[in-house]
């Protein structure tokens, strides 16, 4: 993790010198209005989404943004509702930066960046009411829980957008297992995972667009090397092509009011392209 978030202050024992060298060439390119892979500033890398990549979980998808790969797995379980929301299902997003994904990712408890990623994705989907949580109540007073786990498999930058895309695509292709309550009300009933009670109903599609600021220039869909050179990021999650449903600024750079509005417009204009990949197959 450390390499990519150096500018964001999470300096560890990273190879500072190597980073400085990379940072210099990226910054140099950006100053001349260029990117290493010859993309336009607001252009995304090729996007590809595979759905239903696994059988055991109720939903799954892998999102590719160029070389970046993020996997989302969805499990549906019987859960106890939160005491203040007795009739609502439970929705939870977690993320794991696997040590396979980057030489500087280390195994261990979630760090601040993986927590941030999961929480930003969670907030967007939750705020947009993508999942009707009331529809997840079960006849015996229990509820269904929708657990999304985001696995970063290959970190080549812009993990948040890829993770949001994977999560949305997986949720759009999630089946709900059949539930049979127990005759004893105190006991939890049984889920029949091979028998479908229909698909999870998705009311609203949410996508995330992240923009990195390098030397005053803002670019979309940054690579990991561009992230090293970045001074800060603004992520905007858009629902239904017009609403802001979550946002997060990260890194030291500040954004002016007009910049935020411009990036809002840029995110809206990206919506159709990204959402098309997230939709149901």
């Amino acid at each position: 993790m450390k390499a990519t978030c150096q500018k964001q202050g999470n300096n560890g024992d990273e190879k500072m010198i190597l980073n400085n060298v990379k940072e210099a060439y990226i910054t140099d390119l950006i100053r001349k209005g260029k990117r290493a892979d010859s993309r336009a500033p607001m252009e995304y890398r090729p996007i590809e989404v595979e759905t239903n990549v696994f059988e055991n979980c109720e939903g799954s998808a892998i999102a590719h943004l160029g070389d970046t790969k993020v996997l989302a797995g969805v499990k549906i379980d019987v859960a106890e509702p939160f005491s203040d929301r007795p009739n609502e299902g439970v929705f939870m997003v977690n993320s794991e930066f696997t040590p396979s994904a980057h030489p500087q990712f280390e195994a261990g408890p979630p760090n601040e960046r993986s927590i941030e990623l999961a929480r930003v994705v969670d907030r967007g989907i939750r705020a947009a009411n993508s999942i009707d949580l009331n529809a997840l109540a079960l006849p015996d007073g229990r509820v269904l829980g929708v657990f999304v786990d985001l696995y970063v498999l290959d970190h080549s930058g812009n993990l948040i957008d890829a993770a949001a895309l994977a999560a949305m695509a997986a949720l759009n292709n999630t089946r709900i297992p059949k539930y049979e309550p127990s005759s004893d009300e105190k006991k939890r009933g049984k889920l029949f995972r091979t028998e479908s009670a229909g698909q999870l109903d998705i009311k609203s599609n949410v996508i995330a667009c992240s923009f990195e600021k390098i030397e005053g220039t803002t670019i979309a869909d940054a690579t990991d090397e561009e992230e090293v050179a970045s001074n800060g990021r603004l992520t905007i999650a858009i629902a239904d092509g017009e609403y802001m449903v979550a946002s997060q600024k990260s890194g030291a750079a500040g954004f002016k009011r007009q910049e935020i509005m411009n990036l809002f417009d840029a995110a809206v204009s990206k919506y159709a392209e990204l959402a098309a990949h997230a939709k149901k197959r």
Partner: peptide
Amino acid sequence: RTGEVLLYQMDGKLTR
């Protein structure tokens, strides 16, 4: 002084 937003988070549903 600079007009910059340094912490920015958002959660909910807002139009432009």
